[in-house]
Design a protein around this nucleic acid. Structure first.
Lengths: 154, 154
DNA sequence: GTCTAATTATTAAGATATTAACAAAAAAAC
DNA sequence: GTTTTTTTGTTAATATCTTAATAATTAGAC
């Protein structure tokens, strides 16, 4: 039986556990959850994204995303619209309120991130990014947020 | 606004998303969820652990652990007992069935881990471990699974 | 053009995360 | 020894994850 605490999953989980509460505290000031912020974060960069694209980019599983978007909608931050060209597609658009939030949240988040810049030197960051990418692109295509795809071999 | 996809949290989340489905598929063969396995994994190494110690070691938040342990108990894999010396403490003990499961699950899990050994060379693993530990031990003590502790400054 | 397969979104069910609040027991202070 | 504080476990409420199954469209094959 291998070492549990030093296994790759536990290493990653522990790092995230140390990392995220600080950011969540920021989101909470604006009544946002971490996932809600992630959706907004992507829309601020590219508004009107289809749900599936949003799921991939935010790493939020599609079935969960439905609820996240709906709560954002109830909060008046986004709207849902069917695509005119492909009626299967649901696009998520920011409202004025959702757009306005960017200017408030972003500075705080950026400042929190900045605290990490000096934490490791550029070479370490490069190595870390490369290793994470390597791990993420390994695995037989599993791990994308489209859970219902995995194991579709019939 | 910084790069979202290359942010530390997203790097870690993506790696985990690629990593875990493979392991979960193994656990599922035995009717176990990932968290249930983590609890068993720790008990196989040290039986009779108190709930709080179990929460820290498995990185499962204490309120969630209650449910995880209870489902394991209903499945006949563990038992709960009050400590005789400190009646606040609830210890979790393996049943015979829970103990027997180790011999079945461990080989499969070890084999899956082994597939990663050759994936990065020893020096990369060392560097990765060091960086994750560094991140985990950074942050003001936040991130431990005892959520109600965070921000207890009154 | 019609039938079939693939894509996009959604619902459902059980398990877990996150935060806050609370009860019981033990430890520390007085 | 009683009061206060800390520790350990638990419940509650809301949000999300994970997996499987299903509806609505669209794309492809015939």
């Amino acid at each position: 039986m291998r070492n549990f605490d030093q296994s790759l999953p536990m290493l990653l989980y522990r790092a995230l556990n140390a990392l995220m509460p600080e950011f969540r505290a920021i989101f909470r000031q604006f009544g946002l959850t971490e996932r809600q912020w992630r959706v907004l974060r992507v829309l601020w960069e590219e508004d009107g994204k289809p749900l599936l694209a949003l799921a991939e980019r935010t790493l939020i599983p599609a079935p969960s995303l439905i609820g996240v978007v709906d709560r954002l909608r109830k909060g008046g931050l986004v709207e849902r619209r069917r695509s005119a060209t492909d009626r299967r597609v649901v696009q998520v658009w920011l409202t004025d309120g959702g757009r306005a939030l960017q200017a408030e949240v972003t500075p705080l988040v950026d400042r929190a991130y900045a605290a990490f810049d000096g934490f490791m030197d550029p070479e370490e960051w490069r190595a870390l990014t490369a290793m994470m990418d390597k791990i993420a692109s390994r695995a037989n295509g599993a791990g994308d947020p489209l859970a219902h795809k995995v194991g579709d071999e019939k």
